[in-house]
């Protein structure tokens, strides 16, 4: 499946695409291409507390500071809301394996919504392609290919498995973090404090789902594409040297909205809702459908369920 010739073509394609992105980014201005000391040393950010130890006032100061910082960087106003969790809500996600066509619309929507770096490219969702014949024995992730490049999806005889953060109830990544910069919120969302992370990448070694991504270089988002509705624990633009991941679109779901990938899915394969509400879509599918979680044997208890619709 991993064809070296195609790999080369893909690499070349990736390179030219990045070149293009770089040129556009350079036109956008200050945010582009400047690696070192792109942001001046910020005393307040440096001595900022762990988000979990902050008082309400300190969180207000944080949101103000982030709004000022990003407005300066991207030249447009930002709406920063540190919305808290909703009572009696624990989020769960369902994904219909029999529907997914591997079109990567969710990846695209996620990148846009969550201000992922365009160059170097970071994508929180990875869509793996499997040969249907092999999947009858279960998904062996080693057989998956995220680099498929077809004219049309789904390709004949292929099935697709999108993977992002599984928001485990017993999350290995939060256990290993040396600074307590990542934790599970009361509504079940595993979040990262992007000002507190030191970038040791222990969580990346611990995550069984490859959900965590590191900012190897200064991330770049063209100013005209940046999403200005941000949450400090979610889609705020990140800095170099920190780990980032899916937050179930915390900035949307805590206001009752669906995550961006859910909205983008053209086949309705994605389901989202409150696990504690017996009438929610997610509760219905857990009761009535054949579901499975990835790597159940690891006892991470993901809140991301795959099912056959």
């Amino acid at each position: 499946m991993k064809n070296p010739e195609r790999d080369e073509q893909l690499d070349a394609k990736g390179a030219s695409r990045r070149k293009f992105l770089r040129t556009t980014a350079a036109g956008v201005g200050a945010a582009a291409g400047v690696p070192a000391a792109a942001e001046a040393f910020d005393f307040e950010t440096f001595f900022q507390k762990n988000f979990r130890s902050m008082s309400d006032e300190e969180i207000d100061e944080l949101t103000d500071r982030l709004a000022r910082k990003y407005e300066k960087k991207y030249g447009k106003p930002f709406d920063v809301q540190a919305t808290g969790p909703v009572d009696n809500v624990v989020f769960g996600y369902g994904l219909d394996i029999s529907r997914c066509i591997g079109c990567r619309r969710c990846v695209d929507a996620c990148v846009q919504e969550n201000n992922q770096s365009r160059d170097p490219e970071i994508q929180w969702i990875r869509v793996l392609e499997f040969e249907r014949e092999r999947v009858v024995r279960g998904f062996e992730l080693e057989d998956g290919n995220p680099y498929y490049d077809h004219e049309q999806a789904p390709a004949e005889g292929m099935v697709y498995l999108p993977i992002a953060c599984q928001h485990c109830e017993d999350s290995p990544c939060t256990n290993v973090c040396p600074t307590g910069a990542t934790w599970e919120e009361p509504d079940g969302i595993v979040v990262i404090d992007y000002d507190w992370c030191i970038g040791c990448r222990y969580c990346m070694a611990a995550c069984p789902y490859g959900a965590r991504h590191f900012n190897w270089a200064e991330p770049n988002i063209p100013a005209d594409e940046v999403n200005t509705n941000i949450h400090p624990l979610g889609n705020r633009p990140r800095g170099r040297g920190v780990v980032e991941k899916c937050s179930f679109c915390i900035q949307r779901v805590r206001d009752g909205r669906y995550p961006a990938c859910h909205e983008a899915c053209p086949v309705g394969a994605r389901k989202f809702g409150n696990l504690l509400d017996p009438n929610s879509e997610i509760s219905y599918l857990l009761k009535n459908k054949r579901t499975f979680v990835l790597k159940a044997e690891l006892n991470t208890r993901p809140k991301f369920f795959y099912f056959y619709g």
């Binding site: 979990r52 130890s53 040396p178 040791c200 040297g241």
Partner: peptide, 19 residues
């Protein structure tokens, strides 16, 4: 090896929040 070495104090007892 760490991405933000200036922030290592985050894991020191007292000033930081060592997990």
């Amino acid at each position: 090896d760490i991405g933000r070495p200036e922030m290592v104090w985050h894991m020191m007892p007292g000033v930081g929040t060592p997990n």
